[in-house]
Nucleic acid binder design. Sequence first.
RNA 1: GGAGAGGUGGCCGAGUGGCCGAAGGCGCUCCCCUGCUAAGGGAGUAUGGGGGAAUACUCCAUCGAGGGUUCGAAUCCCUCCCUCUCCGCCA
Length: 422
Amino acid sequence: MLDIKMLREDPQYVAEQLKRRKFEFDVDQFQQLDQTRKEAQTRTEALQAERNAKSKEIGQAKAQGKDVQAVIQQMSVVNDKLKKNEVLLADVQQQLQDILYQLPNLLDASVPNGLDEANNVEVSRWGEPSEFDFEAQDHVALGEKRGWMDFKTAAKISGSRFVVLRGPLARMQRALIDFMLDIHTKEHGYTEVYVPNLVNSDSLFGTGQLPKFAEDQFRVMGEQDLWLIPTAEVPVTNFMRGEVVSGKELPLKFVAHTPCFRSEAGSYGKDTRGMIRQHQFEKVEMVQIVKPEESFDALEVIRSNAETILQRLGIAYRVVVLCAGDTGFCSAKTYDLEVWLPGQKKYREISSCSNLVDFQARRMDAKYRDADGHLQYVHTLNGSGLAVGRTLIAVMENYQDAEGHIHVPEALQPYMGGVKVL
RNA sequence: GGAGAGGUGGCCGAGUGGCCGAAGGCGCUCCCCUGCUAAGGGAGUAUGGGGGAAUACUCCAUCGAGGGUUCGAAUCCCUCCCUCUCCGCCA
């Protein structure tokens, strides 16, 4: 969420900035509401002050054995007024809050303009897209032919957008998770964490999935307030919710492997073939909690940490910076890594690395004490390192041969018990 | 699932209706003393919001969350959440 002070001081600026996202912020409506709020708050607080003073009076008078009936009479009038004002104030504050919660983050100045993914800007490329002297197959053809990728059984037991992996592919997915976690913990300085895969709505609010994106989540039936996580970002970033840490403890760097669950509401008909877009997929996620002045450097580091995985696997990719219209609700700036998929002859997203600056920290009240002893919001970042299901696809498609065998990338072989070809 | 105890400031911990935003201790910051990796003395030390030029002052809110009783609630009542102990069950 944005700083309400900034909204009050310079709503025009916020409105202009949000226009880059094609988000319309109604300045007049906001200012009117805030004016109402201010009046209601002033009145309410004056009445509260009066109530407090009179109550104190009563206490003292009683102690001296004086009669307090007259003052108590006056109080009932004050209390009536107070109740009315409190109700009004709560209502206005609720309205302001609703507006505030719907406002996306301000974009960093370096984010390019543009409406949708067509306007994302490529910033770098690594490797050469694989060339084959035969017709490259996609992962579905490769996987189903050997009986290792089974959408039919998954559909029977769960429905569409699920998969069953068997034998070597199940093993390779596990190997990829292990491989990624090893690199991030041993070489990049992240602490591995194991976290709940069900979270409460406060956590989803903290990272920005609620209230606006409830329909993208899976909610658990029953008494309890629990939702399946759409990404490990939710439980891990929420470590910080309501916490104050000392500046010395920053940066905090966590990496977690979790399954991720997404309803994919609104993506009907999109990527219906194969494992690209599933309701459930594995992901290794990096999260950093840093000081404000360090967050944009940290974003570059997270991006390179994600790149390392693809480089070690020897798979071509490119990096794009998302344009204004494609950048997520909470993010100030996002890089996507797009991996080359020979089966589609396209680069497809395999990682998303974002700097949320203080947007999530405000929502979850996550602060640190700086060198001067002042409290400040931390900055939060996250990046996929990487989406494991899509990495599996990328390995399959880029390392296939004419017979439909899949060669295991050298870096992954130790994690596959030395097996070189599937 | 059964029985009980509890959730207070960075931490520990007192506080059962007004003089409590909250004793005391620890920690931390500054000053004094001390010729030494110690001890002692003094002062300060929650967060958010309103007014204000103000890190002066002042008002409001906050003692797990939300309701209620009351002129007045950290303190009484209700609901919920969480933690701990014992028993049962269990991957």
